[in-house]
C-alpha cells in the first residue's frame, strides 16, 4: 500500500512542463465555471454565499495542503491561523478602520505572523509528535480567545462589525453576496497562483523532496526544519487570509473557528479531495460544504453523517476523489 501511495504521489506531483495544454484547458474551464457561479448557482438551487463558503474552505485547505500534501507535515492546528485571520479582520473593522483591504491585510498578517513565529517550534519534531504540538498550539489560541472576554467577546464570539463598502472608482460600492463572492474568488485565484509558483520553484521541489525522504535531504546538508517552517509560514498566511474572508462573509468571528475541530474539517477537505492533487482541496471543499449544508438542513444527526464522511473517505478514498478518478482513468 505504501509503495502504491508513493508512486501515486510521484505521478501526481505538480509538473509545469508536461501536459501544459491539457492543464491550460482545465484551468480555463475551471475559471469560467467559477467566474459564472452567481449566474448558474441559483438555477440549480444553491445560493451565492454557499459558493463563497466553499471557496473560503478550499482556500484554507489549499494553504494547509502545501504543508500537508506537498511537504508532508501533518498540522492539526491550522484552524488557529484561520481563526486569527478572522479575529484580526473583525477587530480592525470594529475598532480601527473601515477599509476592507486594510482589515483583510491586517488579519492575514496576524495569522501569518503567528504561523511564522510558532512554526519553528513545531518543526522541531516530526510525524505524530508534530501533529500533537500543532494541535496544542492551536488550542492555546482557542482558550485565549475564550478567556480574553473584553477584547474577543469570549464564548459568544466577536460581533459588532460589518462588511465595509468596497472602494470602487470614484465611489463606494456595497458588498452584496455577489460582490463578496468575487472578492473571495480573487483572493482564491491569487493564492492559487502563488502556490503554483512556489510548487514549481526550487523551493517547492525542496518541499516535495522533504515529504518523500527527509532523511536523505538531511544527509545532503539541507536544513529540512527550515524548509518545513517556511512551508508552515506560507500555509499559515493563506489560512489566515481565508479566515479573514470568512469573518467578512459572516460579519462575525466565533472562537470555534480556532478550535481543533475546525482543523479537522480542513484536513478532511484536503484528504477527501486528494492531498496529492493541486486542486484536491477545492474538490474536497465542494463535497464537504455541500454535504454539511444539506445534511444539517434535513436531520439533527448531521454530526454522525459528517463523522461517516470522515470514516468512509479515510477507509475507501485514501488518495481522495481526484486521486481515485485519476487512477481509474489509468494514465
Amino acid at each position: 500500500m505504501s509503495t502504491d501511495l508513493a508512486t501515486e504521489a510521484a505521478r501526481t506531483a505538480p509538473q509545469a512542463r508536461t501536459g501544459v495544454s491539457r492543464r491550460t484547458i482545465g484551468n480555463v474551464v475551471l475559471g469560467i465555471v467559477l467566474l459564472t457561479v452567481p449566474l448558474w448557482l441559483p438555477l440549480v438551487g444553491g445560493y451565492t454565499d454557499l459558493a463563497s463558503r466553499v471557496l473560503i474552505y478550499a482556500l484554507a485547505a489549499m494553504g494547509l495542503n502545501l504543508l500537508l500534501g506537498f511537504t508532508g507535515g501533518l498540522s492539526f492546528g491550522h484552524a488557529a491561523y484561520f481563526g486569527l485571520g478572522a479575529y484580526g479582520v473583525g477587530l480592525m473593522l470594529k475598532y480601527e478602520t473601515h477599509s476592507l483591504f486594510l482589515a483583510l491585510a491586517a488579519g492575514t498578517l496576524l495569522g501569518g505572523l503567528a504561523a511564522t513565529l510558532l512554526g519553528p517550534i513545531a518543526v522541531r519534531r516530526r510525524g505524530i509528535y508534530f501533529s500533537m504540538i500543532t494541535i496544542a498550539i492551536g488550542q492555546m489560541f482557542y482558550f485565549i480567545a475564550i478567556r480574553w472576554n473584553t477584547l474577543t467577546g469570549g464564548y459568544d464570539g466577536l460581533s459588532g462589525f460589518a462588511r465595509p463598502k468596497f472602494a470602487g472608482p470614484g465611489h463606494l460600492l456595497p458588498m452584496g453576496p455577489t460582490g463578496m463572492y468575487y472578492l473571495v474568488l480573487a483572493a482564491f485565484a491569487i493564492a492559487a497562483l502563488l502556490l503554483w509558483v512556489v510548487l514549481n520553484a526550487p523551493l517547492g521541489h525542496a518541499f516535495v523532496a522533504i515529504r518523500e525522504n527527509h532523511k536523505r535531504l538531511t544527509f545532503l546538508g539541507v536544513s529540512t526544519q527550515r524548509y518545513i517552517a517556511i512551508s508552515f509560514a506560507i500555509s499559515g498566511f493563506i489560512a489566515a487570509l481565508a479566515g479573514g474572508l470568512n469573518a467578512l462573509l459572516d460579519g462575525f468571528a466565533s472562537p470555534n473557528l480556532l478550535n481543533y475541530s475546525m482543523s479537522g474539517d480542513f484536513l478532511i477537505i484536503a484528504v477527501l479531495g486528494g492531498m496529492r492533487n493541486f486542486y484536491g482541496p477545492l474538490a474536497g471543499a465542494v463535497i464537504f460544504v455541500l454535504v454539511r449544508d444539506y445534511v444539517s438542513s434535513v436531520t439533527d444527526n448531521w454530526m454522525s453523517v459528517i463523522g461517516l464522511v470522515f470514516v468512509i473517505s479515510v477507509i475507501f478514498f485514501p488518495m481522495g476523489v481526484l486521486g481515485f478518478f485519476n487512477r481509474k482513468s489509468g494514465s
Binding site: L5, L74, G127, I268, V271, I306, G307, V311, V314, P318
Partner: peptide
C-alpha cells in the same frame, strides 16, 4: 499499514463525532 499517520487520526476524529 499506511505510513502516513493522518488516516488513523482522521478516522478516530470522525468516530468521535459519531
Amino acid at each position: 499499514n499506511r505510513k502516513d499517520p493522518i488516516y488513523t487520526l482522521l478516522l478516530t476524529f470522525g468516530l468521535a463525532f459519531i
